[in-house]
Computed example of a mutant assay.
Amino acid sequence: MYSYSMKQERFETYVLEHKESGSYIEVVPERGCIVSRYVYRGQDVLYLDQATLDDPSKNIRGGNPILFPISSYLENETYTYEGKAYQLKQHGFARQLAGQVISVHANEQEASISLELVDDEATRERYPFSFRLMMTYTLKADGLKIEAGITNNDHKIMPYYLGYHPYFYVEDKATLELTIPSSSYNEMLPNSMAQSQFNMQQQESNVIYDQLQANSCTMIDRARSLQVTIEYDEVYQYIVLWALQDKPFICIEPWMAPVNGMNIGKGIQQLAPGKSDHSAVLIRPQLL
């Protein structure tokens, strides 16, 4: 039986769990509606630096931050809309917004929570649109489903591109195996690839894959006999890998657009007034 509860830590936190299997997620609405933890059958799927979650002045390093209205970064943190320049920092602002819980439920098959993030005066200074971003997280036996519903509440076409930044916990990177469905990539930091393999032996590595040939990728943490498959809708056309040598995580990030997408006009979704877009990502762990 699935269940849900709420606990008060530094921030109000919702826990969706299946106690019999030792699986649960934690969601923090005030910190960008982030899934801060995902544990599958007693194994940490996501990494979390708790201090960054507790400090609202910091970007959270861990969990699964939401990247909206852009993923990646813009050249000079600037884009132009209708002849006016706007400033947007890397990965947008959704992860800094406080969200609201819309509904939460649990039954024999699953537990889910829906939350919303909406525009305000501060967001409209950087992104001149009225929007609603509805996030629904569903925990089931076969994994965690992440669904985004984006509604344009404005009178003009709204450009955006969504992404996610999951930090996957890795016990021993030397035993990690990655399968990315593309041989086409660009290094965002020098020497991020070594013999066609992602290089986790330097201080920081960052690669973006394009021309994806399938809608899923896989990591296997041999040290824990844990496989994690990330499945994503076709609108996510890019997979980004990022790692720091001295930290026990690797980020495997589905993005809709590449670096500087808003300026180069690639991967941008053009949402008509009054319309909504929906997309989903599934994180599917499995013990080997």
Rank of each mutant, 00 (worst) to 15 (best):
K266N: 09
P166Q: 04
P65D: 10
P29V: 14
H278V: 05
A141C: 03
T80G: 01
V170G: 02
I102L: 14
P181S: 07
E26R: 06
V39I: 15
D120T: 01
R126P: 00
D142S: 13
T218G: 03
L189S: 08
L212M: 08
L67E: 06
S184C: 07
I264C: 15
I25E: 08
A194F: 01
T138G: 03
L48R: 10
I113K: 00
K173C: 05
L226T: 12
N107C: 14
Q237K: 15
V104R: 00
A51R: 13
T78P: 00
T80I: 10
T218I: 15
L271S: 01
S71N: 15
S23P: 12
Q203R: 10
S276K: 11
M1L: 10
D154H: 13
N153Q: 15
E20S: 14
K173Q: 08
Q100D: 13
H18G: 00
Y2W: 13
V281Y: 02
W255S: 03
Y2G: 11
E231C: 14
K140S: 08
R41E: 12
T138A: 04
G274A: 12
L16D: 06
Y160I: 04
E9H: 11
E231V: 05
I146T: 09
T151M: 06
G92L: 08
E82R: 08
L53F: 10
L244F: 09
H91T: 12
